[in-house]
Amino acid sequence: MSGPTDRAPARMLLHLIHRTTFVYGGDARDSFNEVRLRPCDDENQACRQFSLRVSPESAVRDYTDFHGNTVHFFDVPEGHARLVIEAESEVETVPDASRAAPAPVGFDALAASPEREMQAEFLADSRYVPLAPEIWREVQDVLSGGRGDVWGDAVRLGRHIHSTFKYRPKTTGVTTTATDALKLRAGVCQDFAHVMLGMCRCAGLPARYVSGYFLNVDRLPGEVEASHAWVEVFVPGQGWLGFDPTHNRSSDERYIKVGVGRDYADISPVSGTYRGAPTLSLDVDVKVSQLNSLTAVPG
């Protein structure tokens, strides 16, 4: 990997706007919503600024959920014809060159790690990720040459998905599970992530879903700029390491993490209910840009 190694490289500063617009065919009312849109703070990134604007204006409260994600909630009781939720943030990310390279760790270390017991839920099936025989079989095919180290095996599984699945928007939806996507061998980032979660878990690797954004400089055909999803795998002694099966690479300074969960169900960006007129359109507009003049390290 290229990049300066003699001194600590500067951090990347990213700006992002995520605007969700609902348009109703008349009056909507008693609207209750939960959103997970605030980028988290961890060893690889810091959220410098965050604001959430809601129109019609309403009081926004927040709490921290089970996985440590920030959830904002608000309600709009009076009638309204459109609802706009706009999150704006500035996030500083640690350059890839400053992150520790994953060292090989064997499965014995994983089984013996003190965190192992508490990670049970990242090894079990979840709403979108059933641990079905066909996923297990896929794992056996990929790892038929024998097991390597924890991170190495996770990367092999991720690369396998990237090379045998087609990126194809509109073939899958919000109800598509990992087994559905495996059957189609196609989908979007969410499906790629779900399949990789299923394969990792079947291989005994604790894996969790990451919801976030990606500064996209080399877009895939048909890829729209929107929320992104990838996977983190637990490596003892090194913590959770990210891999993006859609773009076939480890997560680096271009990735902004909002939160984590067992799968999409735990961390959907916007969810809610309302009474009244039907939804005519739902428009999601995401813009990620770089604020400082660093050039991205080629992936």
Binding site: E117, M118, A120, E121, L123, A124
Partner: peptide, 8 residues
């Protein structure tokens, strides 16, 4: 109590 039993 095993964590797996509670989480599942």
């Amino acid at each position: 109590v095993p964590a797996a039993q509670v989480f599942s």
